Amino acid sequence: PQVPQCKALYAYDAQDTDELSFNANDIIDIIKEDPSGWWTGRLRGKQGLFPNNYVTKI
Rank of each mutant, 00 (worst) to 15 (best):
9 L>P: 02
27 I>A: 04
33 E>I: 09
42 R>N: 14
24 A>Y: 04
9 L>R: 06
51 P>Q: 04
30 I>V: 15
45 G>P: 00
43 L>C: 07
23 N>E: 14
55 V>L: 03
44 R>T: 07
1 P>V: 15
32 K>Y: 11
17 T>P: 07
33 E>R: 04
56 T>G: 07
5 Q>F: 10
5 Q>K: 12
27 I>T: 07
9 L>N: 08
12 Y>Q: 01
1 P>K: 15
9 L>C: 08
39 W>L: 04
25 N>A: 11
36 S>V: 08
7 K>N: 03
12 Y>V: 01
7 K>W: 07
15 Q>Y: 06
57 K>W: 04
10 Y>V: 11
31 I>E: 07
33 E>G: 00
40 T>Q: 12
49 L>E: 08
7 K>V: 13
46 K>W: 03
46 K>H: 09
49 L>T: 07
55 V>M: 04
45 G>Q: 10
39 W>E: 00
16 D>C: 13
31 I>S: 03
14 A>D: 02
8 A>I: 00
49 L>H: 06
45 G>W: 03
27 I>W: 04
15 Q>S: 07
27 I>V: 12
35 P>L: 06
25 N>T: 08
44 R>Y: 09
16 D>H: 08
51 P>R: 14
10 Y>P: 02
58 I>Y: 06
49 L>G: 10
6 C>I: 03
43 L>P: 00
37 G>T: 05
18 D>S: 14
34 D>N: 14
56 T>Q: 12
11 A>W: 06
12 Y>I: 00
32 K>C: 10
18 D>Y: 12
18 D>V: 07
17 T>V: 09
41 G>D: 01
37 G>W: 03
29 D>N: 07
33 E>C: 08
54 Y>H: 15
44 R>V: 09
32 K>S: 14
13 D>V: 10
44 R>L: 10
55 V>A: 05
9 L>I: 05
54 Y>N: 03
50 F>C: 00
47 Q>M: 09
19 E>S: 10
53 N>V: 09
14 A>I: 01
5 Q>G: 03
15 Q>E: 08
40 T>N: 05
8 A>M: 02
49 L>W: 10
42 R>Q: 13
43 L>G: 02
37 G>H: 01
22 F>Q: 01
36 S>E: 07
53 N>Q: 12
43 L>H: 15
1 P>W: 08
2 Q>E: 09
36 S>Y: 06
32 K>R: 13
30 I>G: 02
5 Q>R: 15
36 S>Q: 14
51 P>N: 13
51 P>V: 00
23 N>L: 12
15 Q>P: 04
34 D>V: 06
30 I>H: 02
23 N>I: 12
53 N>G: 13
24 A>R: 12
18 D>G: 13
31 I>A: 06
36 S>C: 07
13 D>K: 08
52 N>W: 13
24 A>N: 03
56 T>K: 09
35 P>C: 12
22 F>P: 01
26 D>L: 01
7 K>Y: 12
12 Y>M: 02
55 V>C: 09
21 S>L: 00
14 A>V: 01
37 G>D: 05
48 G>P: 01
42 R>T: 11
12 Y>A: 02
31 I>T: 08
42 R>L: 10
22 F>S: 02
41 G>S: 00
43 L>W: 03
37 G>N: 05
36 S>L: 06
56 T>V: 12
8 A>N: 01
56 T>M: 15
22 F>A: 01
48 G>K: 02
29 D>M: 08
51 P>W: 10
10 Y>G: 06
21 S>W: 04
40 T>I: 13
31 I>F: 04
6 C>H: 01
21 S>P: 06
54 Y>L: 13
30 I>L: 12
24 A>E: 13
38 W>S: 09
42 R>H: 10
9 L>S: 06
49 L>D: 06
10 Y>R: 15
27 I>G: 01
10 Y>M: 10
32 K>H: 15
11 A>Y: 11
17 T>F: 07
21 S>G: 05
12 Y>L: 01
50 F>L: 09
52 N>D: 09
25 N>L: 08
47 Q>K: 14
20 L>E: 02
25 N>F: 06
22 F>L: 04
30 I>R: 00
49 L>Q: 10
17 T>G: 13
42 R>Y: 05
27 I>P: 03
33 E>N: 03
29 D>S: 09
22 F>G: 00
18 D>N: 13
1 P>L: 15
36 S>K: 15
46 K>D: 06
53 N>F: 15
51 P>G: 02
22 F>D: 02
45 G>F: 06
22 F>N: 02
32 K>D: 08
34 D>F: 06
9 L>Q: 07
32 K>L: 11
30 I>A: 02
7 K>A: 10
36 S>M: 07
53 N>L: 09
43 L>E: 03
18 D>Q: 10
58 I>T: 04
36 S>N: 05
1 P>E: 10
31 I>H: 05
41 G>T: 00
9 L>M: 08
24 A>M: 13
18 D>A: 10
6 C>D: 02
49 L>P: 03
50 F>W: 00
33 E>V: 07
1 P>A: 15
50 F>M: 06
43 L>Q: 03
50 F>K: 00
31 I>K: 04
20 L>Y: 01
16 D>P: 02
6 C>P: 00
6 C>F: 03
34 D>T: 11
19 E>W: 05
8 A>P: 02
18 D>C: 13
45 G>H: 11
8 A>E: 03
9 L>K: 09
7 K>S: 09
31 I>P: 01
44 R>G: 10
54 Y>W: 07
9 L>A: 06
56 T>P: 04
55 V>R: 00
26 D>N: 03
40 T>W: 13
39 W>S: 10
17 T>H: 10
51 P>S: 07
39 W>R: 01
21 S>V: 01
2 Q>L: 11
12 Y>P: 00
43 L>S: 07
